[in-house]
Amino acid sequence: TGIVNVSSSLNVRSSASTSSKVIGSLSGNTKVTIVGEEGAFYKIEYKGSHGYVAAEYI
């Protein structure tokens, strides 16, 4: 489990890349469940599926 540490919002992406499609966003202080790690990204549970967020902001 981690907490989103941004002042505005954090993009949730379809894969572990900044060039991948943005599938949603999370606001600051949102609690997320981390299920894996790929490079600089965490794989998280997101809306019944999975998404990827930049690990530096969690």
Rank of each mutant, 00 (worst) to 15 (best):
T1K: 09
T1S: 11
T1Y: 15
T1E: 11
G2A: 07
G2Y: 09
G2R: 07
G2T: 06
G2H: 07
G2Q: 05
G2L: 07
I3S: 06
I3G: 04
I3H: 09
I3N: 06
V4Y: 04
V4T: 07
V4R: 03
V4K: 04
V4S: 06
V4H: 03
N5W: 10
V6E: 06
V6S: 12
S7K: 12
S7H: 12
S7T: 12
S7L: 12
S7A: 12
S8M: 11
S8G: 15
S8Q: 11
S8E: 12
S9D: 09
S9V: 11
S9T: 13
S9G: 14
S9A: 11
S9K: 12
L10R: 02
L10V: 15
L10N: 02
L10D: 02
N11C: 15
N11A: 15
N11Y: 13
N11M: 14
V12R: 04
V12C: 04
V12K: 01
V12Y: 02
V12A: 00
V12W: 02
V12N: 00
R13M: 15
R13F: 15
R13I: 08
R13H: 15
S14H: 11
S14F: 12
S14R: 09
S15T: 10
S15V: 06
S15N: 09
S15K: 11
S15A: 13
A16D: 02
A16P: 14
A16T: 06
A16K: 03
A16L: 04
A16G: 06
S17A: 07
S17Q: 07
S17N: 11
S17W: 05
T18F: 15
T18D: 12
T18E: 13
T18Y: 15
T18M: 14
T18G: 11
T18Q: 12
T18S: 13
S19A: 11
S19K: 11
S19T: 14
S20I: 03
S20R: 04
S20K: 01
S20L: 04
K21P: 15
K21I: 11
K21M: 12
K21W: 08
V22D: 03
V22N: 04
V22F: 05
V22H: 04
V22A: 06
V22G: 03
V22C: 08
I23S: 02
I23C: 05
I23P: 01
I23W: 02
I23G: 01
I23H: 01
I23M: 07
I23Q: 03
G24A: 03
G24L: 03
G24M: 05
G24V: 03
G24W: 04
G24Y: 04
G24P: 01
S25E: 12
S25G: 06
S25Q: 14
S25L: 13
S25P: 04
S25Y: 14
L26D: 01
L26S: 01
L26C: 04
S27C: 14
S27A: 14
S27T: 12
S27M: 13
G28C: 12
G28Y: 14
G28W: 12
N29W: 14
N29H: 12
N29T: 07
N29R: 09
T30D: 10
T30P: 03
T30M: 10
T30V: 09
T30R: 06
T30I: 07
T30C: 11
T30H: 07
K31E: 11
K31M: 13
K31I: 14
K31L: 14
V32D: 00
V32T: 01
T33D: 05
T33K: 12
T33Y: 10
T33S: 08
I34R: 00
I34K: 00
I34Q: 01
I34P: 00
I34F: 03
I34T: 00
I34N: 01
I34Y: 02
V35A: 05
V35W: 07
V35P: 01
V35I: 14
V35L: 14
G36K: 06
G36I: 04
G36F: 04
G36A: 10
G36T: 05
G36C: 08
E37W: 13
E37F: 13
E37V: 15
E37D: 06
E37T: 15
E37Y: 13
E38I: 09
E38R: 05
E38S: 08
E38A: 07
G39R: 05
G39A: 06
G39Q: 05
G39N: 09
G39E: 05
A40Q: 11
A40K: 10
A40D: 12
A40R: 10
A40M: 12
F41W: 13
F41Y: 09
F41I: 01
F41K: 01
F41L: 03
Y42T: 03
Y42L: 10
Y42A: 03
Y42K: 04
Y42Q: 01
K43R: 09
K43F: 04
K43P: 01
K43S: 03
K43L: 09
I44L: 02
I44F: 01
I44G: 00
E45P: 04
E45N: 08
E45D: 07
E45M: 11
E45V: 13
E45F: 08
Y46T: 00
K47Q: 12
K47I: 06
K47L: 12
K47T: 04
K47S: 08
K47N: 14
K47H: 09
K47G: 12
G48T: 07
G48P: 03
G48L: 06
S49M: 12
S49N: 09
S49K: 11
H50T: 10
H50S: 07
G51T: 01
G51S: 02
G51Q: 02
G51E: 02
G51V: 03
G51C: 03
Y52T: 00
Y52K: 00
Y52C: 00
Y52A: 00
Y52M: 02
V53P: 00
V53L: 03
V53S: 01
A54P: 15
A54C: 15
A54D: 10
A54H: 10
A54W: 14
A54L: 15
A54E: 15
A55H: 07
A55C: 12
A55F: 07
E56A: 12
E56R: 12
E56G: 07
E56N: 08
E56H: 10
Y57F: 14
Y57H: 11
Y57P: 02
Y57W: 08
Y57V: 04
Y57K: 07
I58H: 02
I58S: 01
I58Q: 02
I58D: 01
I58V: 10
